[in-house]
Amino acid sequence: MSLVTDAAAAVCLLLGAFFSFSAGVGVVRFDNLFARVHVVAKPQVLGMLLLLTGVALRLQDRSSVTMLVLVAIFQLMTSPVAAHMVGSAGLRTGKVEPEFLEMDDGGR
C-alpha cells in the first residue's frame, strides 16, 4: 500500500514539476503578453495541483491534507482573476497588437 501511494506520489511530483518547467519555458519563449498570461493561467495551475496531490499522497496526514486542499482551492479561485486583470490591464494600456486579436472586446 505504501509502495503504491509512494509511486503515485512520485509520478504526481514529476509531472507537476514538468508542468511548472513548461510554464517557465513558455514565459520565456512566447512573444506576446496574452500568450504569457495563458501559460501562467493554465499549465502552471495544473502543475501546482499535481505537486500538491503528490505531497498529499506522501504525507497522508489529516491537517496537512486540509491545508493542501485549501491551497488548491485558493489557487483555482485566484489564478483566473489574476490572469484576467493582467490581460485587461495589458489591453487597456496598449500592450497588445490589434491585428493579433480576432475580436477586441476590451471596453476601454
Binding site: 514565459v27 505537486l51 491551497v71 493582467v86
Partner: peptide
C-alpha cells in the same frame, strides 16, 4: 513592460511553492 514582469513573478512564486512542496 511591467505586466510581463508581474507574470514572470507569478511563475517564480509558483516555482518556489513547488520547491517547498517537493
Amino acid at each position: 513592460s511591467m505586466l510581463d514582469r508581474s507574470v514572470a513573478f507569478d511563475v517564480l512564486t509558483t516555482a518556489l511553492v513547488g520547491a517547498i512542496a517537493v
